[in-house]
Amino acid sequence: MERPRRPSFSELPLRKGDPPYSAWGLYGADDELGTMNLITPAVTRAAVAEVKLGVTIPLDLPLDAIAKPFIPSRVPYEHKLLARGYANDDEIRINTQSTSQWDSLRHFPYQSGYLYYNGVTNADISGAEANDKNGIQNIARKGVATRGVLVDWCRYAKRKGIEVSPFERREITIAEIEEIAEECGLEFREGDLFILRTGLVEKYRELSHEEKCAVAERTGAEAAYIGVECNEVSARWFWTRSFAAVATDTLSFEAWPRKNSEGWTWLLHEVFLAGWGMPIGELWDLERVAEKCEEVGRWSFLVTSQPLIIEGGVASPPNAMAVL
Rank of each mutant, 00 (worst) to 15 (best):
A123V: 12
R169G: 08
L150D: 08
C184V: 04
F188P: 08
G185K: 11
T146C: 15
S126D: 15
I139P: 00
C184M: 06
I162V: 07
N134T: 09
D132G: 04
I136V: 14
I139G: 02
V151A: 09
N118K: 06
S165C: 11
R189D: 06
D132K: 12
A123G: 10
E129I: 01
V164S: 07
Y156A: 00
E179V: 13
A175P: 05
E176W: 02
P166E: 02
C154T: 01
R169A: 08
E168H: 15
N131V: 13
A175C: 02
A145C: 13
E179N: 07
E168R: 15
I136G: 00
E182M: 06
C184S: 13
E171Y: 02
Y117G: 01
T173W: 04
R147P: 06
R170L: 04
N138E: 10
E129L: 10
R189A: 03
L150Q: 05
A123S: 01
R141A: 13
G148W: 03
E179L: 08
I180H: 00
R159I: 05
A140F: 02
E190S: 13
I136E: 05
E163G: 09
A157V: 01
V144W: 03
R155E: 06
I172V: 14
K160H: 12
I174G: 03
E176M: 07
D124C: 12
D152K: 03
G161D: 08
L150E: 00
G143I: 04
E187Y: 13
A130L: 06
K158N: 12
V164Y: 07
C184A: 10
D124L: 09
N138W: 15
N131Y: 10
A130F: 09
N134E: 05
K158I: 01
Y117V: 05
E178S: 11
I174T: 11
W153M: 00
W153Q: 01
G161M: 03
K133P: 04
D132P: 00
V149D: 10
R141E: 05
N138Q: 14
Q137F: 15
V164Q: 10
N131G: 14
P166S: 07
I177Y: 03
P166C: 12
G135R: 14
I125L: 15
A175L: 02
A130W: 03
Y117K: 04
I125R: 04
I136W: 02
D132F: 13
N122W: 00
N138V: 03
A140P: 00
V120N: 00
K160E: 10
N122G: 11
D152H: 01
E176C: 03
Y117N: 08
C154Y: 13
I174D: 00
T146M: 07
N122M: 10
R155N: 12
A130N: 02
A123L: 14
F167E: 05
E163M: 15
G127C: 08
V164H: 12
N118H: 07
A145R: 08
Y156H: 03
G143L: 06
F167W: 11
T146S: 14
